[in-house]
Simulated scan of single mutants.
Amino acid sequence: MPDRNPAALDFLLTRRSRPAKTLTGPVPDRDALMPILQAGLRSPDHGKLEPWRLIVLDRAALARLAALVPETGERLGRTPEEVAKARDQFANADLAVAVIEVQKPSAKVPAIEQSYSAGAVCLALLNAALASGWGANWLSGWASHDRQFAARALSLAENERIAGFIHIGTETNPPPERPRPDADTIISWVME
């Protein structure tokens, strides 16, 4: 039987993202953030392409992104409520890590697998932040999927897009548990 890590399994069975709007300071400093970032970079990466990179955004950088949202929302025809919600995602945050998917040419690794790898980095960062005792949440949203916003906000190249923003901070209120999927209704067993 393989070696077990009951603490890690218990963490994964009970982990819970914290709503970004409930996160506040203090936030991890560079020394506290580095192990979280390094954990994220240990994500599955078929072909060792490293089809991602990270951008750490402090309060000032997030305020700059927030200021770009209204113009983006107007161009895209978003409602004032949608614009306010997207703007607040950045304006009310103290720290976020932008996970940037970097599509790389490969005859062996399809683009979709590179996207999956970037998503794995998002989840690994989220879980590493939670395991380190911080509150954390993985967000994206309509603004982050807009090519012009991504290029202006983060100077992304044509082969890059935002996979997600991992917001990290101190949680002000532990969230209530939410209903989880019923394993019996979504798991199939094929034994032959």
Rank of each mutant, 00 (worst) to 15 (best):
P2N: 05
P2C: 03
P6I: 02
A7V: 10
A8V: 11
L9T: 12
L9H: 12
L9W: 10
F11Q: 03
F11I: 02
L13F: 03
T14H: 13
R18K: 06
P19Y: 00
P19C: 02
A20M: 11
T24L: 01
P26M: 02
P26W: 00
V27C: 02
V27E: 00
V27H: 00
D29W: 00
D29Y: 00
L33T: 00
L33I: 04
M34V: 08
P35Q: 04
P35W: 02
I36L: 08
L37M: 08
L37S: 02
A39Y: 00
L41I: 06
L41M: 15
S43W: 08
P44C: 03
P44R: 10
D45V: 03
D45P: 02
H46M: 08
L49F: 10
L49Y: 04
P51S: 05
W52D: 06
R53N: 10
D58N: 15
A60D: 15
A61R: 13
R64I: 08
A66V: 09
A66R: 03
V69M: 01
V69E: 04
V69D: 00
P70Y: 04
T72I: 05
G73I: 04
E74W: 12
L76H: 07
L76S: 10
R78V: 05
P80E: 03
P80K: 02
E81S: 01
K85H: 09
A86H: 07
R87F: 02
R87W: 05
D88T: 10
Q89W: 01
Q89S: 12
Q89T: 13
A91K: 03
D94H: 14
A96M: 03
V99G: 01
E101A: 11
E101P: 00
V102E: 13
V102H: 09
K104N: 01
K104M: 05
K104E: 02
P105C: 05
P105F: 11
V109C: 01
P110I: 10
P110Q: 01
A111W: 04
I112G: 00
Q114I: 05
Q114E: 01
S115Q: 12
S115F: 14
S117P: 00
S117Y: 07
C122E: 02
A124S: 14
L126C: 10
A128Y: 06
L130Y: 07
W134N: 09
W134F: 10
W138K: 02
L139D: 07
L139P: 01
G141Q: 06
A143R: 03
H145A: 11
D146G: 07
D146A: 07
Q148N: 15
Q148S: 15
A150C: 13
A151P: 04
A151I: 13
A153Y: 04
A153F: 06
S155K: 15
S155E: 15
S155L: 13
L156K: 04
A157I: 05
N159L: 11
N159P: 11
E160Q: 10
R161D: 07
G164W: 02
F165S: 06
H167I: 14
I168F: 08
I168M: 06
I168A: 11
E171C: 11
E171Q: 15
E171M: 15
E177N: 09
E177M: 11
P179Q: 08
D182V: 10
D182S: 09
D184I: 03
D184Y: 06
D184K: 09
T185E: 12
I186T: 02
S188W: 12
V190Q: 14
